[in-house]
């Protein structure tokens, strides 16, 4: 990892006795695209809002570029672009007015680049914010985060509400930011999104950072399901001991199986090909489902996950 630009040490925040985050520590190197994964309510937004100096930590420190995010918040914010989880803006201003307003508040925004971003995300700037669809509201917020080419981008579930085309455009923008040496801290509860965009990930659950490492290391928690329907009942034993299969469930009197998978599906496809297949569907469970199975089935986190942070 390169020199750290985001350093979080022992960060704890509660809301009047209710859990927020507990003793969270991690570092993000300059130029990294860091994914912050966790189910809903795990503490992702709390961590981000502490980094943004919108919340004051009960204990611990959060530093960006060596500056304490609370004590030196003004200098920190000059370095940042931010997309909140639930963006709310003046409903009576047009998209263009909002972007111009935030450009003025930030200062030093290259208008030509701003217009390029507007073109790129295909935003109609003449409509009022309240008239925008969810996806277009998200575009306004994304553009204001990227428009000043910030050194660090802090994005809280940034693609929520974007259509696949714009998600692709967003991926491109993140990639370019990374190529320019900028750092991206991106929270998500969608495993595949983080896998596609990020180089390293941290996983937070119930306020605790339970795991941190390279994206490649996610494979041991990455699970998915395959449901195969056959023309007639088949012997389920044909799948139980295959590589990658962790669980088998028989459906419709044996003429269909639901397989819990981890890793490659090659062996399963080859085994299924022995029988007349009617349909095959693959499903990636939500991160919450993954956590539910991975962390709670055995009552506690696996050893390799616990204490890694």
């Amino acid at each position: 990892m390169t020199a750290s630009i985001i350093e979080v040490e022992g960060l704890t925040k509660s809301y009047g006795g209710k859990r927020g985050i507990i003793d969270v520590s991690f570092q993000v190197g300059e130029g990294e695209v860091f994914g912050f994964l966790g189910p809903n309510g795990a503490g992702k937004t709390t961590t981000i809002r502490v980094l943004m100096a919108l919340l004051r930590a009960d204990s611990g420190t959060a530093r960006i570029a060596g500056l304490d995010s609370w004590d030196r918040s003004l200098e920190v914010k000059r370095l940042l672009g931010y997309v909140p989880g639930e963006p709310s803006l003046d409903p009576n201003l047009t998209g263009g007015q909002l972007l111009e307003y935030f450009a003025n508040l930030r200062g030093g925004v290259d208008q030509a680049y701003l217009k390029t971003l507007i073109e790129r995300l295909d935003l109609d700037t003449s409509r009022k914010f309240r008239q925008y669809s969810t996806g277009n509201k998200r575009k306004v917020v994304l553009i204001q985060a990227f428009m000043h080419r910030p050194r660090v981008l802090i994005l809280d579930e940034p693609t929520s509400g974007l259509d696949p085309l714009n998600q692709q455009e967003f991926d491109g923008m993140v990639k370019e930011a990374r190529e320019e040496g900028h750092t991206v801290f991106l929270s998500s509860h969608v495993l595949s999104e983080v896998e596609k965009t990020c180089t390293r990930v941290g996983i937070i659950r119930e306020g605790h950072l339970v795991r941190i490492g390279d994206v490649a290391e996610l494979k041991d928690i990455k699970r998915y399901e395959i449901t195969i329907s056959f023309a007639h009942p088949i012997p389920v034993d044909a799948f139980t001991k295959l590589d990658g299969v962790t669980d088998v469930e028989t459906l419709r009197d044996g003429s269909a199986v639901r397989l819990a998978m981890q890793g490659a599906a090659d062996a399963v496809i080859k085994a299924a090909a022995q029988y007349p297949v009617v349909s095959l569907t693959s499903y990636e469970p939500s991160l919450e489902d993954v956590f539910l199975r991975y962390y709670e089935r055995d009552g506690e986190a696996p050893k390799e996950a616990a204490g890694v942070a």
């Binding site: 100096a53 919108l54 003004l74 709310s88 508040l105 200062g107 917020v141």
Partner: peptide, 14 residues
């Protein structure tokens, strides 16, 4: 309350 200060406060305005 409605979160409209959030992005304003993410700009370099104290």
């Amino acid at each position: 309350d409605d979160g409209r200060l959030e992005i304003v406060l993410s700009t370099p305005q104290s």
